[in-house]
Design a protein around this nucleic acid. Structure first.
Lengths: 235, 235
DNA sequence: AAATTTTGTTTGAGCGCTCAATAAAACTTT
DNA sequence: AAAGTTTTATTGAGCGCTCAAACAAAATTT
């Protein structure tokens, strides 16, 4: 009796699709051992991020990743179908860490809008987020984002809620101001942060994390004269 | 009688140097084929920038460049020693265009410091500089900058004079302010511009050139209340 | 000015290599 | 033993780069 369940690779219009195919009526869905699989995936993603940070995206290969993880190349392809899948997974994970950082920072302060604003800003300059390795990863992906739509999708997924959080905090802080003015200020803050990230990435020796955070807060103090005293106390 | 003036190419420590050498007192201008060489180099660099803007840096190969230029791969290696040399040349050329743009903008306005400041800012948002193709090229290189020291050298070569120009203009604008305060404001302006570039690069649909230029100028108006009326008139 | 030599330019085939991906075999867990 | 996991070996495409030879222009000689 031939009762097997095989994995078949088929080429459809140039796109490789892998599907579980039933050879006999009998069903038995192929299941991976989830615990182990998740561990491996995480291990491979961490290795990928490390390789990007130390070798750059251009020189990151399945070999460098596998080597960093202490595994074989084959296992990388086994858990992520392709190199692109692995890289997208790594970018997603990197953004997830960013998201976790600012949401956690928000949750650690009370309901005071100014505290929230400061928390959001300082989260972006925290050592966990704003370090050369982490920034290298982001800029590596952003450099290729226009040519790899998958990266853009991941970016949008995480950037939108983050921008909304900043806007919401600014609304709380300036309840009587017109909506557009508030949006403008929120936008300036995030844009300035992006600029600082770029400068820290390109000139880590001259532009430093802590000084940048301070300068960003000083800028906010100028934008919000009503809160400048409280801000000055925090700077 | 041998009366010629020759152009001699000498290899000094791997760097090609061309110098005019006088063989006898008598002169006879010998143009050689330098004109052709420069034309070819320019042709190849333009093809490289185009390829980076349309294919990305990762998928830019000697083949894509040669194809774009309508030449053979061999000639690309002939004029630039290596692919890296070609890419560095392209980055240098790209920065040279940036330099030419802001210096020209400065030269077109009078001696009024505020006019100069506006000219500097608007130059960074001019269509010639601040368009998706151009930004793609920069971000492509910046993504790899930490792993290709040659790129960093080129960046520094052009970034330093640009930062100095902004600082000098700010000093003229605020002659009585302390130096560090002036430096801080100049820094904020350039950092904000970097941030806008990033946003335009990553979200060209939602973040637009002209609006960003306007917002940048509005921010400057807030930073320089003494000049806000004149700035408002320009916005 | 024609012929010849020298020098600079361009081509295209192809070498050596690296890479992602595949396949098969070996091993581990259930 | 079956299912799941991992390693090892192999494949084939594509890469940067080399090089010999063809070609073109300029310099020199005749």
């Amino acid at each position: 009796m031939i009762a097997t369940l095989g994995i078949v690779n088929i080429q459809i219009m140039g796109i490789k699709v892998s599907m579980t195919q039933q050879i006999t009526p009998q069903q038995k869905p192929r299941k991976e051992r989830k615990e182990n699989a998740d561990r491996r995936r995480q291990q491979l993603i961490q290795a990928t991020l490390k390789s990007i940070a130390t070798n750059g995206l251009a020189k990151t290969t399945l070999a460098t990743v596998a080597n960093e993880a202490g595994l074989s190349q084959g296992v990388a392809v086994f858990y992520f179908k392709s190199k692109t899948g692995l890289l997208s997974g790594a970018l997603h994970d990197h953004y997830a860490g960013y998201l976790a950082n600012w949401t956690e920072a928000l949750s650690k302060v009370g309901n005071d809008p100014l505290d929230k604003l400061i928390a959001l800003i300082e989260a972006d300059f925290s050592p966990k987020i704003c370090n050369p390795e982490s920034l290298s990863v982001w800029f590596a992906f952003w450099g290729e984002q226009k040519f790899t739509p998958q990266y853009a999708e991941v970016s949008a997924e995480f950037d939108i809620p983050r921008a909304k959080a900043m806007y919401d905090v600014c609304v709380e802080l300036m309840p009587d101001e017109p909506q557009e003015k508030v949006a403008q200020i929120a936008d300036w803050i995030d844009t300035l942060t992006d600029g600082y990230w770029q400068r820290i990435h390109l000139s880590p020796k001259t532009v430093r994390r802590k000084a940048s955070a301070r300068e960003a807060l000083e800028m906010v103090a100028r934008l919000l004269p009503e809160h400048s005293e409280r801000l000055a106390a925090r700077i």
